[in-house]
Design a binder for these strands. Structure first.
Lengths: 247, 247
DNA sequence: CCGTACGCTGTACAACGTACTCCGTACAGA
DNA sequence: TCTGTACGGAGTACGTTGTACAGCGTACGG
């Protein structure tokens, strides 16, 4: 694999070289390839993007595996395209004019919706930016939501970025927990399979808080009444923490 | 693979059935296997745990690949053992008696140290608890750091868990960003490889904030002066957000 | 009308996890 | 002391992965 960053970026932004007109016409469209890959990843559950295989995608597209390599340099670049396309497809509420708390809440909700639509998105390494058009548009939109807060709190650009990262981190983490409880399905079965060993081993004398709090948190997460209490807790804490920056 | 949760838990807690005394003695120690696996994962960088292979570990231990399957049911369980061992090995400062801000800061710093020692630890899915002795001890220790805050703010057990999750999420996210800038190594080279395309494509008219803030944040992360500013920002926000719960 | 650039594919290789089968060891019971 | 058997370990093999390479056929530029 080349893994040439410039080539990957050119692919993401669709600024490939003209690609001479000789030979047979392409049978596929890059956007179709990415759309099908996204569907496959979605079908693959939380690890759908990691589990996305070139061969499976080729089968889906009715094409030989190696054919995909004329569209995309390799698996890694394909994943980047899928991620960026998901970012590009996010609905972005126009919240200009609203208060900063509402704007930040909207951003958080949009990201929560993303993670619900594409469970694998929560496993994308946030430390490795894709720098594609989708991610850039998302970044621009979300930074705009901080306009009022940045003014009120006197945030410079570095802090504005940190504040956004802060908000997204908490949202992603909440999505991961939510997915786990959803995957678990029958919560009783999950615990039932583990209880025999845990009862033998989780000594309330050694781990008083862990046993008590773990049981409470586990029960709360699985209660249908309050599925996203941790999420709302985190969001409220984020907003309060940022509010403390204001004068 | 069996992937029997009870078997995995028994393995983690070392409460395997006695295992009759017939036949040759075991040539390896499970703890050694896990220690070597940890070393291999550490050497593998950020994706070291995902990239840890049974064959490579067997080679390292001077043993046939299949031999490892008499110690561990499969790759997944091996990974769980590695993770739990890393949690178990974390130094845990005794901060009882200190103020809650100091105690929470200590917890955050311990986790940051973990992520620095084992970059792969930041990629462990926090939604899928391992429930081993290491994780349990870590959980107990960290919950204890919230004792004073829970009293002052009237946190119930569910909120206490959520608050801890909140703190750890922000820490993990900061570690991921830090790792990225560390991996990047020569920051100039990273940007240089991407600049030609980005300059062509990042229109400051379309993405005014993204271009401006992105540049500032990128520069700040790579400045040696202020490597963990985002981390301290996040931690301060967490503490302020939690402080708002008091009275 | 040809040469050539290009889309596409079949084959092949290295690496992976792990199921199955066998071998030799060393203890339990006689 | 002898023997049956439980058990640790290893060799082989299968199906999977990403992708390098070489060839084939198509359709346009000259």
């Amino acid at each position: 694999m080349a893994t040439d960053p410039a080539r990957t970026l050119a692919l993401l932004w669709r600024v490939e070289q003209p690609a001479g007109t000789r030979g047979p016409r392409r049978g596929l469209d890059l956007d179709d390839v990415v759309a099908r890959a996204t569907a496959l990843a979605d079908a693959g559950g939380p690890d759908g993007l990691a589990g996305l295989s070139v061969r499976a995608l080729a089968r889906e597209l009715g094409v030989a595996p190696m054919t995909l390599y004329t569209y995309v340099p390799g698996r890694e670049e394909l994943a980047a395209l899928v991620v960026d396309a998901a970012y590009a497809a996010m609905p972005r509420r126009d919240t200009s004019g609203l208060g900063w708390r509402e704007r930040l809440t909207a951003v958080a909700e949009e990201n929560l919706a993303l993670h619900r639509a594409h469970p694998w998105a929560a496993r994308v390494d946030p430390g490795r930016p894709v720098l594609g058009p989708g991610e850039t548009a998302k970044y621009e939109h979300e930074l705009a939501a901080f306009d009022e807060l940045a003014t009120l709190a006197g945030l410079d650009d570095v802090d504005r970025d940190a504040a956004l990262t802060f908000l997204l981190d908490v949202t992603r983490a909440a999505a991961l927990v939510e997915q786990h409880t959803a995957d678990t399905g029958d919560a009783g079965a999950w615990w039932a399979a583990r209880a025999p060993v845990l009862e033998q081993v989780l000594d309330p004398g050694r781990f008083p808080r862990a046993v008590r709090v773990g049981a409470a948190a586990g029960a709360a997460q699985q209660s249908a009444r309050d599925p996203d209490r941790a999420w709302r807790f985190g969001l409220a804490r984020v907003l309060d923490g940022l509010a403390a920056l204001i004068g």
